[in-house]
Amino acid sequence: MTTATAAEPELVSGPTAGPFRRFTRRLVRQPLAFGSLLVIVLLVITALAAPLLAPMDPNATDLVARNQPPGGGHLLGTDDLGRDLLSRLIYGTRITLMAPLIAVGVGALIGVPAGLIAGFWGRTPDWLLSRLADAMLSLPSLVLAMAIVAARGPSTVNAMTAVGLAFSPRIFRVVRGATMSVRHEVFIDASRAIGCTTKRLIAVHVLPNVAAPLIVQATVLLGFGVLAEAGLSFLGVGVQPPEASWGVLLRRGFDNLYMAPFQSIPSGLAITVLILAFQFLGDGMRDSLGKELRRA
């Protein structure tokens, strides 16, 4: 194996699978992350198939059957307008899942490019963008959300866009920091010496190397997004009644806590499970990026 050529012996045996295959294989091997992935997939299916799954119309009020305890005709009971809580929970999955994705999407759309620019060029662009990020961080996100909603009208999309704006400096900071450390790696110089354009350096060599911290930050923010949506909807700037997200259900249940304590338990549990699932999936994804991507 080692005689004729100067080549060194193989250190690895077996063919190398594609990067995506290896990523999923490693992810599937982590029970917590894989379980979380299953939970999220199930929730997505629930959201898509809500009309098929929900036993009743989520918005149909029944003033005779108000605040019914679980059991009987209503598996999870009814709320103070007599609406079936199970159906509302099932339909609520849609907004609950969509809202944090919008927020993190908007945040990443702004934060990632800004972070790459600031981290890669440093100096003046970095100074300007960093001060801007500091300013945005010092602005209460609620005020920001109110301002946007005041300008564009209340809706989930508008409210979550505002939350995304508030998230963007956090994503910016993470990407900027990671970029700054990658920028000084020798392989960046090596690619420059080959004749790569700066655009290519950033897109092809820097971005994949900042993926790990970015994923972790994004999943943390997804969790925050779920909570932010609940808070904003409670204030009336998010989802509009009679539609409801889990956060809205929790809030309404909370108001009736003394009369009907069961109302807030299912939505509360659901939110907890969802946030944990985002968290564990994020950790699992980071760990599954493998040696080729994982950095110290």
């Binding site: 194996m1 080692t2 100067a6 060194e8 012996p9």
Partner: peptide, 9 residues
């Protein structure tokens, strides 16, 4: 002069 190959893991 070289020693062909590398130290086995």
């Amino acid at each position: 002069a070289t020693i062909p190959g590398t130290v086995p893991p």
